[in-house]
Write a protein that binds this DNA or RNA. Structure first.
Lengths: 347, 347
DNA sequence: TTCAAATCTGCAAACGTTTGCATAAAGATT
DNA sequence: AATCTTTATGCAAACGTTTGCAGATTTGAA
């Protein structure tokens, strides 16, 4: 009813003839406060409609109960799936999540790091830009003992906690699967090699070829920026001249889907003429016709590990977790129709 | 180099022999400070690695430069698409976004409202739970003049800014489209009527039937909880007995996709035997075979409007915007293969 | 030189918490 | 009854900013 409607613990204290410290302790369930007092205080707090001011508490405690998250964009399946569980998990721990998109721009990422530091997040989870190779904009966090966890798109040699999928094995498994299905001439569509993911999947691809005594041909690897338009351009290039490949391992699902659409338009049969494998197990791979074989990266697991790592690092100020800085989340091939079938019947 | 590495404006002031107020004003580009001083201060700030503490400033100013967002879940296409643009747009304005998922639980939504209030967000954007009919947990915000903007799943009679799609028109258009394509017996799969969206789309459906002199039959409307499993169960029910409908208008795309899959499995031809229209223009509708006709809700537009409304309400403390509390974002039917074709050739 | 105006800077309080330390009250022990 | 614990409460400083007001310095005009 008063003019200033924002109630504080001072109001509660005055109303009750107690000191603010007692009220504060009562609300925080401090052992030194008698049960009676606590009850009184809580009741009055409810009555006055008191709401704690997290900023004030944060300032005093030098912690915000807030975690920052930087991802390229929320609209991509894999980061979105991770974000979902990260947010839910953090909520359980009583932490807020500030989500920021770098839109794959290094400059934006740098700026975000700064402003998240200003917000005094208690921890930071980052999946980097495709082009981030210098990670020094995260130095401030290290200097001030604020844990940073990188996931998925991670730094190569920046000292920090890293949680990533087994991209080498993923690349290997995908390629080997195509080989086992009878492919002899497998194209790999990769991404920018500034990003660890594509380097490792490519390495897995090479290794699988080698292990199966299939010669690696440089011109059978295509690099593009992973956008839909680029994928289409790449498709054109791949099928510009005979012989067509009999297998395509695309380093992401959007590309795989685009290739599939392209093939259908050109009447190249999938999987009879060419088999396709994507990466990430985007739900879209399942509903497309034919459904596309892909590599599941278990985003839920990754998200949970990110949160566990953060909570661990935050609680134990001793950065013991840094001793095992790298965690690898397993992958699993999900075979579907796009790679199915025995060796081709008709030549 | 000192032990306490966190630098404050006090450190800058001491280093320069200035007062903190001057430093503060210099950093905020206050007109009363000379250019020389500003330059000195900025240089020293850089040198010391000073980072403003947003919590301290927020406490003093009673504003956090942070917006809260509550959505059912980030992993759904439509809210995710909105979130993407909301976040990017807010970033431009220098605001952070705290994203929270209610997981469609009213209880969680209530709790989130509370903790976001404690974080002293400067504004709140909400897409409610399917079951939220009582919105009183947002009262605190109103009482303290913190703008709340509801979007998509909005309250019916709670006094607040509302931004929503034209669901009546959407339902109408979708149904009319099916009629125009020759359908005479159109099933509508709706959602819980506790949620405004489904009420209005249903009303649009009825209205279109009426307008085209097709009798409305109660048993041709199915209600379900919009999960994938439920959609499947509903599909079973719909096609449990002859005559099959010749058109299905599903109130969301996931359901539409599920129906499509079901039909394919049962060898019910789409669109020849039954035509399907979904809702939201989820990108999945485009890549499925046949592609599914859907109703675009322009999530980007909606997101932009949400941000505009928030910024407007925050800047002009006078809640003038409340005078036109409801904004309707247009919809557009995107016709695709699932509803294509002239009247059936073979009966 | 003197004074007024214009320009710049500083003091100190305030924002709403938490917490180390001191103290007061109550209970237990002799 | 005197002393010692134990338990409950209060005082006051601190967290890092911002800002109204006052005061100091410079500039320009007389």
């Amino acid at each position: 009813m008063s003019v200033r409607s924002e109630k504080t613990i001072v109001d509660i204290a005055e109303e009750l003839g107690l000191s603010v410290s007692t009220v504060s302790r009562a609300l925080n369930d401090h052992p030194n406060i008698s049960a009676k007092t606590k009850e009184k205080v809580r009741k009055m707090a409810r009555k006055l409609g008191y709401r704690p001011n997290a900023m004030a508490a944060g300032l005093r405690n030098n912690k915000s109960r807030t975690i920052g998250l930087i991802i390229p964009r929320i609209s991509m399946f894999f980061p979105a799936a991770i974000t979902t569980v990260v947010q839910n998990k953090l909520q359980e721990y009583g932490y807020h999540l500030i989500i920021c998109q770098s839109n794959d721009s290094l400059e934006q990422e740098q700026q975000l790091a700064n402003t998240l530091y200003s917000a005094r997040v208690d921890g930071l989870a980052v999946s980097a830009t495709l082009s981030t190779t210098d990670f020094s904009h995260f130095d401030i966090f290290k200097q001030n003992n604020i844990p940073v966890v990188f996931f998925d798109r991670t730094p190569r040699d920046y000292q920090a906690k890293v949680i990533k999928g087994d991209d080498f094995l993923g690349g290997f498994t995908a390629t080997q699967h195509l080989i086992e299905q009878g492919c002899k001439d497998i194209v790999h569509i990769s991404g920018p090699l500034s990003c660890n993911l594509y380097v490792e999947r490519l390495a897995g691809y090479k290794n699988a070829l080698q292990q199966h005594k299939i010669p690696f041909k440089k011109q059978r690897v295509f690099f593009h920026e992973l956008s839909r338009e680029n994928a289409l351009a790449t498709a054109e290039k791949i099928f510009a001249q005979q012989p067509y490949p009999d297998g395509v391992f695309a380093t992401n699902d959007t590309t795989a889907i685009t290739i599939l659409e392209y093939c259908r338009k050109r009447n190249i049969r999938v999987p009879e003429d060419v088999k396709i494998v994507g990466y990430s197990n985007d739900p879209r791979t399942e509903i497309v016709t034919p459904s596309i074989t892909s590599v599941d990266q278990f985003p839920a697991t990754m998200g949970e590990r990110v949160v566990s790592a953060l909570m661990d690092l935050i609680q134990t100020r001793h950065p013991s977790t840094y001793r095992h800085p790298q965690e690898i989340v397993p992958i699993q091939l999900v075979a579907r129709d796009s790679s199915a079938g025995s060796p081709k019947k008709k030549k």
